[in-house]
Design a protein around this nucleic acid. Structure first.
Lengths: 219, 219
DNA sequence: CCAATAGTGTCTATCAGACAGTATGGC
DNA sequence: GCCATACTGTCTGATAGACACTATTGG
């Protein structure tokens, strides 16, 4: 006889907004962990693949518009027997990176700066920290930072992503040189932004490159 | 009502032996995939954490001596509904890196060079390739290569690990400079090897460093 | 001596960090 | 003009790749 376990998918959805790396969370309205912050999640259905379940939960539970276009990757699986006090649940965490989306229309869902999420339900804080560390690491050697940006963005937008995710300032000039010379990272649109009090910046789109060679090290 | 799924743990156990990167596999003696190569695996027990299940399967199913001391990390979870034709099974794959161990005493288990494992049962080839890619990537920025070596090893032993895992030759002199100058990677034992026809090499142990700064890029 | 492997030194191209200087907008 | 931001150029130190050279063993 083979033991079976309920399996859920939990989403670590990260974005950069209001000068802070933020996560999409909701306030639990039921025990256990009543009124604690929690990640959006749900049980997988029979005959549903894991990425499909993650997309479904992004749409149905988290209320994220355009869930199909956002970056999504499997993070890790959490299976400690007591992680849910009611019954054993295996949880497959997914990491989603999003630009500054409009607030979810779902009740109780909110973008909260990760620095404020010191206490969460279940092991969701561990999942969130693992997701942040994955994002931090991947900014080093991939062009993933653009997943946090609008379709068209400036080099300064991209730099702000790096600075907020890595939580450290970067030299704007060296950063500019690095990303504009990285083959396939950025594609010029020909347009420029107009802002207050500064030279207009060129607008770029994501280039075809997925990897950054050589990587941009946090050192 | 919450659907439950049987959950198994499958092991991608890699080693370097006989001048080849090899995996620990066994020949299935039952349908489906009768007589195909398969990874060692088993179902998790109730109240058993995932890493504990992985260690148990290393000992019981794979017959690996000293399973408690080897490097073990979670690789990925595979959940496509049809991945097992009999019933839906969720599989959490673990990656284990081992030195050249004696052959397992378990029947049907064997070390096979990964280049020969072109056809495997279930999605085990995908798991193995994901494990190899994880190992390749981690050699770049961690000191993990030593996990493939005996407790005491030479710089040449370590270089052979890199060369076989990356499947490309490295300059012995530049490699030597890189690893001996990397802070905390290697600790001299004071001993040397004696070999035929060559200057004896210094023996090293693993140092305390986990990360390699700056990384050794495959480029 | 020679063969073989271990280990050191040197040159050079590349690249990151630091930062001066120029360009182009709003006020 | 002044300020702010975007962008370019230059210097320097660290490092990887290429490879000459020395060291230490066995035969």
């Amino acid at each position: 006889m083979v033991p079976s376990v309920p399996v859920s998918v939990d989403l670590v959805v990260l974005t950069v907004r209001c000068q802070a790396l933020s996560a999409l969370v909701w306030r639990r309205d039921n025990p256990p962990f009543l009124r604690r912050w929690s990640l959006a999640g749900g049980f997988i259905q029979l005959d549903e693949d894991l990425p499909d379940a993650a997309r479904r939960i992004m749409t149905e539970r988290a209320g994220i518009p355009g869930a199909g276009t956002l970056h999504l990757e499997q993070l890790q699986t959490y299976g400690y027997p007591d992680r849910d006090p009611r019954q054993r649940v295996l949880s497959v965490a997914y990491l989603c990176l999003a630009p500054d989306l409009p607030a979810s229309e779902k009740a109780h869902m909110a973008w909260v700066p990760v620095a404020e999420l010191t206490v969460m339900a279940f092991d969701h804080r561990r999942m969130m920290l693992d997701g942040i560390e994955r994002a931090r690491a991947k900014l080093e050697y991939t062009s993933l930072a653009a997943a946090f940006c609008e379709p068209e963005f400036t080099v300064a937008d991209l730099r702000r992503v790096y600075e907020l995710v890595w939580a450290r300032p970067l030299d704007p000039r060296n950063f500019h040189r690095k990303v504009t010379k990285a083959e396939g990272f950025l594609m010029e649109t020909g347009e420029t932004t107009t802002r207050d009090g500064g030279r207009p910046a060129k607008l770029y789109r994501r280039g075809p490159a997925e990897l950054l060679h050589p990587p941009m090290l946090r050192s």
